[in-house]
């Protein structure tokens, strides 16, 4: 009996990369669209994200949506 370590490793590798990548990407989106933290001694109000951060966040979210679409494609095509 031989254990298919290659397939197992492949599953693990793909899972790890996809999970960390997607969560990281999505977090970038969240950070880009949320308000900046208030520092002590600075202005009291939290500042809204700038246009650049907003665009980057949108791109990150779009990539996440594409990944979800690819996931659905995998399910359907399987």
């Amino acid at each position: 009996m031989t254990i298919d370590w290659a397939a197992l490793g492949q599953v693990f590798g793909v899972t790890l990369v996809v999970t960390v990548g997607l969560v990281g990407l999505f977090t970038v989106g969240i950070v880009g669209t949320s308000r900046k933290p208030v520092r002590e001694g600075e202005a009291a109000a939290a500042t809204a994200p700038g246009a650049g951060a907003r665009a980057g966040a949108l791109a990150a979210f779009a990539l996440c949506a594409a990944a979800v679409a690819y996931g659905i494609y995998l399910i359907v095509a399987a």
């Binding site: 990281g24 977090t27 950070v31």
Partner: peptide
């Protein structure tokens, strides 16, 4: 995978 992702997301979003 989830543990690594959790670590990453807390790190990236720290301070928020």
């Amino acid at each position: 995978a989830s543990m690594a992702a959790t670590r990453l997301t807390y790190r990236l979003a720290r301070g928020r």
